[in-house]
Design a protein around this nucleic acid. Structure first.
Lengths: 350, 350
DNA sequence: TCGCCCAAGGAAACCGGTTGACTGGAGGTG
DNA sequence: CACCTCCAGTCAACCGGTTTCCTTGGGCGA
């Protein structure tokens, strides 16, 4: 039981309280605190800020939203929270939003209409000022809904062509980085495990892989698709290396995967075929998260600027909310190769 | 460019619009839609619902909150989103909240005061009706703030003694389950890698480990602490197995870790000492997430009801918001052993 | 027939901000 | 000296719901 001598509810200070304390009107306080009106004397401004501070004033978000101002909240929709990649993006977005004075809501797209609906509701209910959409797919009804509405929004990681609202990473570059690494080690037959077809980063990575493989003049450049999960990596790997079952040499000496989870699945599958990593097959994954360094062997990855993607997208969205017209943006941070034990020269001995 | 013949803004229907369409007053609509007033004829009730549906009416959350009603939103504070354990809990909470008509905000505690502040702000700003706190630590200022306030809240996974608001899992049972498994395989010297001291589930798991080890009459039951991360697992493992460096047999033949990440770190560390898994050292981790099955070797784990923890906590919180007094709750789902390749009899040959 | 009560629903006061129209007075101008 | 301008703020209407009383009409008992 709390001490009754202490006020249980420190009675939230309201705008009118601040006004009274500073000896001005509500209107003036509102203007000062929102930095909106320049025709207020410096001294008055000070008094208002002082009063607000000592009273611990916090504007009531509902009242604000109601009065037609902004809610100071954004919403981020990601395809799957189980995927640490999206979580990293979300963390970047969350942090940057905070820095800009926005609250960010995180929602997961459960592949059903549900998330779509609930996401639209956030807007309808006037809970948020803008949307960050990381799960756009062609035909996703949300994309339609949102583009014919006037609510500020940004597509994140997955792009909607012609929207002029895409914030992406240089995924093509990640394929080049991975291929260059493997090529310089001497690999000439390389396989790529792509993500599900139809998803922007997945397709872009695959195309860049094939293009650059051509430029390098590889003997073989095979591709198989799978979900971004461990299981997706397993099945795609078995597809690519299936021929090896007969005991012959694997058709490729290295694999480059589209996600970290796929790489983990791939490593298991490679071993289940009786092959060694990296002596028989080298593996490069995408997205450098802590777990990569603790696998057996430690996984070589291409580190993508996931966190930066989140921050950049929020910057763009907030700019859009404030009225600046935006265009497509590519996060400037370049993919970076993190070399570990899962890659070596083909045919190397342990 | 959107088709101009389609209204760009489908002009949100307001309460008054619904009232007009149904031929009643705002008051009546409000009562009907909130199921609050019984003195409305069934026929009128129908008309109101009908009108609301055809107009696609969505109440403005800000207006609602302002008028003194609830915001229909909860907030969940977790220690680290990078930890998939908490993400799983969050997903459960999110889903259940949705089912109950609540929106749930997810926030990460960055160990600084920041999250604390921003979490309190959520309340001050009238954005949420209740709090789910999964990062309570002794001395955490939020615990203080929140207990002397009158806002409904629940402590989740980590308990605050005497609060009568704790929702936890049977972590003691998880230690027993793991120990029984290892004991039945023949292990008599077992090590435990605990989480950071001072955190409820970490301490509880450790105590239960020592207690049950005593009951089983083990020759050795060693404990080392580390963060819930991979690195935490590495350092704790080196501490426990350090003696093995001399070439002698390891002081324990099995390790039981407090988190999945620790187990991954432990496996790497065991290998770096030149020991084999599971022949030299068996490993059991906590929390069964997809990645566990794809490690090398696949990891035996104790599956904890993380998702259920999230749903149960939301149930409890919503009940509290609605005025039902609550007490401490333990999620009824029992920890379950998932046996994989990382455990075998001690001294087994490959 | 009168009076009373209750069911069904309406009028209006709020909730706490924001915003554009408006005002009192100081200073400049012809 | 009358008039205009501009500065520094104030007034009051609104945003879209919720909730507290209040009205109204009809049924029923005496």
């Amino acid at each position: 039981m709390p001490d009754p001598s202490v006020p249980v509810q420190p009675v939230r200070a309201k705008l009118v309280d601040v006004a009274q304390a500073a000896g001005v009107s509500k209107a003036t306080v509102s203007k000062v605190l929102n930095g909106r009106d320049l025709s207020v004397r410096e001294e008055t401004r000070q008094r208002v800020h002082e009063a607000a501070r000592t009273l611990g004033y916090r504007p009531h978000s509902g009242a604000r939203a109601l009065a037609g101002a902004s809610t100071h909240a954004l919403a981020l929709l990601v395809p799957a929270l189980a995927n640490p990649t999206y979580v990293t993006i979300a963390r970047g977005a969350y942090q940057r939003a905070r820095e800009l004075g926005y609250l960010s809501l995180l929602a997961e797209d459960f592949d059903g209409q549900e998330a779509d609906e609930s996401f639209s509701e956030l807007v309808q209910e006037g809970r948020v000022d803008g949307l960050l959409i990381a799960s756009a797919r062609p035909g996703h009804s949300l994309v339609d809904t949102v583009s014919r509405s006037s609510i500020p929004h940004v597509f994140l990681n997955r792009s909607v062509e012609g929207s002029g609202r895409n914030v992406t990473m240089d995924v093509a570059r990640s394929s080049v980085t991975a291929l260059d690494h493997l090529h310089s080690l001497g690999h000439r037959a390389i396989g790529h495990i792509a993500g599900p077809p139809g998803i922007t980063p997945s397709d872009a990575r695959k195309e860049a892989f094939l293009r650059h493989a051509g430029q390098l003049g590889l003997h073989a450049a095979l591709v198989a698709s799978g979900d971004f999960t461990e299981d997706g990596g397993v099945s795609a790997t078995l597809q690519l290396l299936g021929a090896a079952k007969g005991g012959g040499p694997p058709p490729v000496t290295a694999l480059y995967t589209s996600s970290l989870a796929q790489a983990i699945g791939a490593m298991g599958a490679i071993r289940s075929l009786g092959l060694r990593i990296p002596e028989d097959v080298s593996v490069v994954g995408n997205d450098d998260l802590p777990v990569a360094g603790h696998l057996c062997p430690p996984l070589t990855t291409v580190a993508m600027p996931l966190y930066d993607l989140g921050t950049t997208a929020v910057d763009a969205l907030v700019a859009a909310i404030r009225g600046t017209p935006m265009g497509d943006i590519v996060v400037p941070t370049e993919p970076r190769l993190v070399s570990r034990g899962s890659t070596t020269a083909p045919g190397a001995t342990p």
